[in-house]
Design a protein around this nucleic acid. Structure first.
Length: 982
RNA sequence: GCCGAAGUGGCGGAAUGGCAGACGCGCCAGGUUCAGGACCUGGUGAGGGCUAACCUCGUGUGGGUUCAACUCCCACCUUCGGCACCA
């Protein structure tokens, strides 16, 4: 009675029966091991697209597999339902965000059901439900209580299109655009709420006990950007110039450091290279640095103000363009280099960021590329203080400075040199030297040949200018000045240069030895000269601490998480501002602070809460006086930082008064399910959601709320499905692929299996419907093989040795396939899993025509085929399984109704027999000099001697060996034999 | 510029030291059919070869290690992702 495979009929049927039979009901069962399998929750934009299917259906397959393996699997779903698009729809179509969102959710629920996934709908959670965001607000209060939420006035990224501030993580790309709408962001000075994620920077760098992809760990590590170095304090030079520097002796708060220098005037810098301190020849402050105002002298104020203004006006793009010419101005003030007491000028320049480190740097132009460019441009001294590790030195000697026999003398002494022509300056001996010895010998030779009044330089190793009456080392700014004074006096050409280094920069041939940023032996550093590069940094840091001018310090690129959003459609920040009491948290028992439903969304895109008197005006919980609510709402990443906890007991304690000592989920259920065992989702959340949720969990642990430190033990990142044009799918590009039409045409099982089949799950790639037919054909062939078998289970009809061998082969193929499929699904290798099943099915199609048909091995093969298909294509597997079960009358079920216990999806995953999975024969590959010359069938356990014998019996091999001497034979474990001949 | 991933037939991809191209799409031939579609069977990297046996070449490029390299090492090219004046 083999009828046709009509997916459109069986899929809705089984979805209904599964739901009705309670197959997916969640219950904590201490008898069984739990498995919390989580896939990233969707934003209810209105329609599921193919990317959701790509992310979710393989997850479902893996979750189903876990259940068949005997785990009590929790596979929940919900909606990340706050966010800007709802407000956009409100403005555009006049629908309230709540109505729009809930309608979308309703629509998406139906679409999600069509996947046939084992969602725990009984634990669905929607983040915009007041019963949900009551807890979002509860978490905020807890964080506030523990000093992890604070408000500060700071320059923040603001999206003019979305009309709201954004977290640093939500600003993307070189042009610093809004992650959501693509509009370039602007900087605004606003008072905003932050979460102190930086408190956990070090712990977030550790991934102990979690199995996360290398890629994500690297991205998070880079994002946190830990660097070790020292903080060094440079006193301001109060001495001369009497310039009436507007310095006040008030406490000076230096940005991003907890170490204001009370009662002194000093600049603290962060450096990763304290070993280069002796080469710090100037300082640079960020234009926004608070000390700039105080330190600028009257003489320079106009220029400084002008520079700060233009720096402020520049967009971030202009300012951070990598190849930008360095700009900056001197502010008239000087600092004292604490290691040598030298006076160094203070500049401001926009290449120093107020947001990183202390917003101020010591500039070591000889060993920092940016400082080098800056010093070159503004004629500031560049003094090398770290020896070149490669020993290289160069010296260009004008042929007019030495007698004509200089070249011969160089050659005789064994120095490598060649002629170098410099336009307008003449011909030079270009000498390349290696190491101190050579430099010393060379300098002596040069000295002996130099004509009176002439000189030549040695750059790189052993920096110096050799004058006819003796060399001058470039070991300090003073020495630099002395060198230049002699040069200026002796040769007009040099007057255009302020420093030795800029003079050398003019010689192209010198350029590659003038600057380096490597570690190396310290030079020109007083007592530290000679300190080896490997220990220099640590030794100097220790000494700085002893001297009281600096200390070991760690700096992070990570900033605190800005969570304020100037939007209506989010969870309100539960804070009240009272003119008398100040900032007052809303009492726990008043949660949730409800979003007013009657708010009008202003067409200007502003926050509706600001104009809603009923929301805004409130009594102060402390003094009872008139007060106002905070109108900003929370970043939606706050909602998704804890949704995996919400699923455990959705809307826990709804309607009850919340208390600070509550547990945000039903404790027993939480103890059973948490934490998440396997998480799957896109890699685009690496530095946002995936970092936030780790921070959040660590904070919960420290509050005593959660007994674990990581929210998700294992993570897998699937790839991203692009539009058919290879671009990221987006409505504006019109390349969004809707799964519904494909499901209608081919069925959910086909779409599921096709998405799993097209390639490795973590690869993603452009959607291409070519090939989906092949997967549908595969399922039809499965249908034909299995459905036509009904009633044939009567045992083998023929006997004998021939059929025994065929049966054994069938069993071998069956068990080998089971092994492959099991290994693949464990590793999320769905593409090769499906290929193995296709191969297996192709084999069965052929085997059906042989005597194995109807044997118990045949029946086992069909059962196994269905069990292996159940995770990937749940509907067809169930339909065919039920037909087989009924046929065999295994189920005593008088009602005839489907019972959950009979479902294929709760059958135990079969176990392969290693003996059967092993092949009896192999194709022995015979090579001559590594080239395949013959393939011979042999017993799987063949030994080397027999293999050799077999190979030598082959006429083909005999021909290749003719007239050759066998030098060596390599036998690779029953697979391959290689004759090395000559 | 720095960090990471990838590069294999006409296409998606398989093989992580041992038969390159599994599986699927497409294409070609044949069967079935009044015909088309669907389905079934066989073939399908390039070149050579009495179109047979078989041979040569072939996994981004150039070197290397090895009996043997898509796979390991070195250098480079291209594409994608992340970071980027981060001190």
């Amino acid at each position: 009675m083999a009828d046709k495979y009509i997916s459109q009929e069986i899929e809705p049927k089984w979805q209904k029966l599964w739901a009705e039979s309670g197959l997916y009901a969640t219950r904590e069962d201490p008898e069984r091991p739990k498995f919390y399998f989580l896939t990233m929750l969707p934003y209810p934009s209105g329609d599921l697209h193919i990317g959701h299917w790509y992310a979710m259906t393989p997850s479902d397959a893996a979750a189903r597999y876990r259940r068949m393996k005997g785990y009590n699997v929790f596979f929940p779903i919900g909606f990340d339902a706050f966010g800007l698009p709802a407000e956009g729809a409100a403005i555009k179509h006049g629908i309230h965000p709540y109505t729009w969102t809930m309608a979308n959710i309703e629509r998406m629920r139906a679409q999600l059901r069509s996947m046939g996934a084992m969602w725990a709908w009984d634990h669905e959670a929607v983040s915009c439900d007041p019963r949900y965001y009551a807890w979002t607000q509860w978490f905020f209060l807890k964080l506030y209580e523990h000093g992890l939420a604070y408000r500060k006035f700071a320059p923040v990224d603001f999206c003019p299109h979305c009309n709201t501030t954004l977290a640093r993580e939500q600003v993307w790309g070189e042009d610093r655009h809004c992650e959501r709408c693509g509009t370039p962001v602007i900087k605004k000075e606003l008072e905003q709420w932050f979460f102190k994620i930086t408190d956990y920077a070090d712990e977030l760098l550790r991934f102990d006990g979690i199995d996360w992809p290398e890629r994500i760990r690297t991205m998070q590590t880079n994002w946190i950007g830990r660097s070790e170095g020292a903080e060094v304090t440079f006193p301001i030079d109060m001495g001369d110039s009497g310039s009436g520097i507007g310095v006040q002796s008030a406490d000076t708060a230096i940005p991003n450091t907890q170490y204001p220098i009370p009662g002194t005037d000093a600049i603290t810098v962060f450096t990763t290279r304290p070993d280069t301190l002796w080469g710090a020849t100037f300082m640079v402050l960020a234009p926004e640095h608070p000390l700039v105002e105080k330190l600028t002298t009257e003489e320079h104020r106009a220029a400084v103000d002008a520079y700060r203004l233009q720096a402020d006006r520049q967009t971030e793009i202009e300012r951070t363009a990598a190849d930008k010419e360095k700009t900056g101005v001197f502010i008239g003030a000087y600092a004292i280099n604490p290691v040598n007491g030298r006076r160094i000028p203070i500049w401001i320049a926009d290449y120093v960021m107020v947001t990183y480190g202390t917003g101020a740097i010591m500039a070591v132009p000889a060993h920092d590329e940016r400082d080098f460019a800056f010093a070159l441009k503004f004629g500031l001294p560049i003094i090398p203080v770290i020896e070149r590790p490669d020993d290289l030195a160069k010296s260009a000697v004008w042929d007019g400075s030495v007698p004509g026999d200089f070249g011969a003398a160089l050659s005789a002494a064994g120095f490598a040199w060649e002629w170098l022509a410099i336009p307008d300056r003449g011909r030079f001996y270009a000498v390349t030297l290696h190491g101190d010895e050579q430099v010393r010998a060379y300098v002596a030779l040069l000295q002996a040949h130099l004509k009176a009044g002439h000189w030549a330089d040695v750059v790189g190793r052993g920096w110096q200018v050799v004058f006819h009456d003796g060399p001058l080392a470039l070991d300090s700014a003073a020495a630099d000045a002395a060198i230049m004074a002699r040069c200026h006096a002796g040769y007009d050409y040099t007057r255009q240069f302020a420093t030795s280094m800029s003079m050398w920069w003019a010689v192209e041939w010198y350029r590659n030895v003038l600057y380096h940023a490597d570690y190396g032996t310290m030079i020109h550093s007083e007592a530290f000269s000679g300190t080896a590069g490997a220990v220099a940094k640590a030794q100097v840091t220790r000494w700085l601490a002893e001297q009281g001018v600096g200390k070991f310090a760690v700096n992070y690129r990570l900033r605190d998480w800005l969570i304020s959003r100037q939007r209506y459609w989010g969870a309100p920040i539960p804070i009240i501002y009272c003119p008398a009491c100040g900032t007052v948290p809303a009492p726990y028992e008043d949660l949730p602070v409800l979003l007013p439903e009657d708010a009008e969304i202003p067409a200007t895109g502003e926050n509706a809460l600001k104009f809603h008197a009923g929301f805004l005006n409130v009594r102060c919980p402390q003094c009872g006086g008139a007060a106002q609510r905070e109108t900003d709402t929370m970043d939606t990443f706050m909602c998704s930082s804890w949704y995996h906890y919400a699923y455990v007991t959705p809307y826990w304690k709804a309607g009850q008064k919340l208390r600070p000592d509550d547990t945000p989920w039903e404790p027993e259920a939480g103890n059973y399910w948490l934490p998440v065992d396997q998480y799957t989702g896109g890699p685009e959340h690496a530095t946002m959601h995936l970092l936030y949720t780790r921070f959040f969990t660590k904070a919960l642990r420290d509050m005593g709320v959660a007994p674990f430190a990581e929210p998700m033990l294992r993570l897998f990142n699937q790839g991203i499905i692009l539009g058919p044009d290879g671009n990221r799918m987006s409505k504006s590009k019109g390349n969004v692929v809707a799964p519904d039409e494909w499901v209608e045409r081919y069925g959910a099982d086909t779409v599921r299996a096709y998405l799993m089949f097209i390639g490795p799950w973590d690869a993603g790639g452009p959607w291409n419907s070519q090939g989906i037919e092949g997967v549908r054909r595969f399922l039809e062939r499965v249908w034909n093989v299995v459905a036509e078998d009904e009633g044939q289970a009567s045992g083998g009809r023929s006997q004998g040795p021939k059929i025994a061998a065929q049966v054994r082969e069938l069993q071998h193929v069956t068990h080998k396939t089971l092994r492959k499929v099991t290994e693949d699904i464990e590793a999320f290798k769905f593409n090769t899993l499906l290929a193995a099943l296709m191969e297996f099915n192709n084999y069965l199609v052929k085997a059906r025509e042989t005597a194995v048909y109807g044997t118990s091995a045949w029946e086992e093969a069909l059962d196994m085929l269905l069990l292996m298909l159940a995770p990937e294509t749940p509907h067809i597997a169930e339909e065919l399984w039920q037909r087989r079960v009924q046929t065999r009358r295994v189920s005593e079920n008088p009602s005839g109704l489907f019972q959950a216990a009979d479902s294929i999806h709760v059958q135990p995953w079969p176990v392969w027999d290693p003996e059967l999975a092993k092949a009896e024969t192999v194709i022995l590959v015979v090579q001559i000099n590594g080239k395949v010359r013959d393939k011979i069938e042999a017993a799987a356990d063949i030994g080397e001697a027999e293999a050799r014998e077999l190979a030598l019996a082959s006429p083909l091999i005999q021909r290749w060996l003719e007239g050759k001497t066998v030098r060596k034979v390599i036998f690779a474990g029953g697979k391959l034999l290689n004759f090395v001949v000559s």
